[in-house]
Design a protein around this nucleic acid. Structure first.
Lengths: 280, 280
DNA sequence: CGTGGGATTATGTACGTACAAAATGAACCT
DNA sequence: AGGTTCATTTTGTACGTACATAATCCCACG
């Protein structure tokens, strides 16, 4: 039996810092080694038993830490084979697509919205077909204009599955916009999104008071509850007036304070390059 | 002592189905009750001890299940106060922003890229300032054009912090585009994104072979490693040729198979409404 | 009436033990 | 040579116990 294979040297050089719960210390120690490159992609970690023994903790404590890192994508585990540093092809980022009303309120503007149209329709009629759903399913169709300080920001086109949300029939959405109403009434289990840039159609241009063809951000969302379609909605926002913004940080990094200077990273910063490389 | 307060009736009506690990059964049972509305926002769950007792499992097993649901945002826990169904203002969605090369390959196209320019620069000079970083820090500036079947898809403007990634100096990025090279060489701990729609500048228009002012998707990403800036990159993609697509599903829903018919949801579906409401 | 300080309760962490399940690799048999 | 079985390693789950920690509630005291 070998006492120390080469990789074990690096893997076991982790050190606990005595701050916070034990399992968090173990977690942080390994996460730091991975992020600073001491543990490279593909490296094998010692077994839980060995880690526990070396660090002087119980096996469950080691397990809790290592399993959490695996859950977050830092490690890959295979029974009998062992635990390995994951090839983090991490190209998934959380991008909040917030309620437009909240965005406006945060910017200190006055938020308003107008219900442009509201009618009950049937799937499969009038050139309308929502393919996740059965034909002839009853839908509520809404068109909403969102404004900030009286300036149009976004057009919302929404279809609500009345079979799942029958209460929506009795709602006029005068006090609560449909997005918020749905969030308050129906949880969803799955959401599909597409994000694209489009030129404004003639209709959109007049609604949003912009030039035809002007760049707009089009976000489409389909949500489901336990497999049943809940709502399909399209947000068309004026490109020059609306931006999506988000930070992605694994919970290990957040909880364990691995990133330094996190403050001051919120406000918009001047961009490198002369101009922003997009507008003339 | 009350034997059954009103909420406990609903909370304890959960039932194990005997499939898979015990803790997963407990997790699934409660998740289902939350999603189907039997447990409404604000409802209080019985204590771990009580749940364990009622379901005939140990307290740690109940704890593991309930703690996992709390981690995923279904529940909120407060010592002494108890466990409550969370007001899920869930407006965060994971949106993969994939490597453009992989996107093209998946669509069956021929992917190519061209390094348009590559130079070493210094922060704070020539109108360039990356405010996360110290002035006079050495940077590598790159401009890359990505093509599918010879058609321009995306322009990538990138700055790499040479203090953190010194190896980049010796890399000509002929065989590996900078995005992939970085992913393989440097893990990141934090990523900030902004997504917006912009009209193509004259320069962009000529590079991408589109009309000036045509809608483009502009994605900006800043990544850090343990608090140190790694790279800042802007992707400008032709709106008509590129879409971001993503599915958000809590891991409970995925792992425990709570959503029905998940298959067949991948391919693009015809849209409701006549036309897609965006292009003339 | 307010307030401060416990007793109480619920969650959080930790350890030991035990067994289950999966996957590897080696011995074995044909 | 080739495939199959089986022992072994490693992770995964489960239970019991114990104590730590936070927050609430309530009572006693000023």
């Amino acid at each position: 039996m070998t006492f120390l294979d080469p990789t074990e040297g690096a893997a076991l050089a982790v050190q606990l810092d005595g701050k916070g719960p034990l399992f968090a210390q173990v977690k942080r120690a390994f996460a730091r080694r991975i992020l600073d490159g001491a543990l490279a992609v593909g490296d094998r970690l010692p077994s839980e038993e060995r880690i526990a023994e070396t660090l002087g903790v119980s096996r469950q404590t080691a397990h809790k830490a290592i399993a959490a890192l695996a859950r977050e994508g830092f490690l890959v585990r295979r029974r009998k084979a062992g635990t390995f540093v994951a090839a983090k092809r991490r190209d998934s980022f959380t991008l909040p697509i917030p309620d437009i009303g909240e965005v406006v309120a945060e910017r200190g503007g006055v938020y308003q919205y107008r219900i442009l149209s509201r009618r009950e329709v049937v799937n499969g009629r009038d050139g309308l077909r929502w393919t996740d759903m059965a034909d002839s399913a009853p839908l509520l169709e809404l068109e909403v204009l969102h404004l900030a300080d009286g300036v149009p920001l976004q057009v919302e086109s929404r279809w609500i599955n009345l079979a799942v949300a029958p209460d929506a029939v009795d709602e006029d959405f005068r006090d609560t916009p449909p997005g918020r109403w749905l969030a308050d009434h129906l949880p969803w289990s799955t959401a599909d999104h597409t994000v694209r840039a489009v030129g404004a159609s003639a209709e959109m241009a007049s609604l949003l008071e912009i030039d035809r063809g002007a760049a707009c951000l089009l976000v489409e969302r389909r949500t489901q509850n336990l497999g049943r379609p809940v709502t399909l909605v399209r947000f068309t926002s004026v490109g020059a007036r609306h931006v999506l913004r988000g930070t992605t940080r694994s919970s290990t990094v957040t909880e364990l304070g691995l990133d330094a200077g996190l403050e001051g990273a919120e406000e918009p910063r001047p961009s490198p390059g002369s101009g922003d490389g997009s507008r003339p």
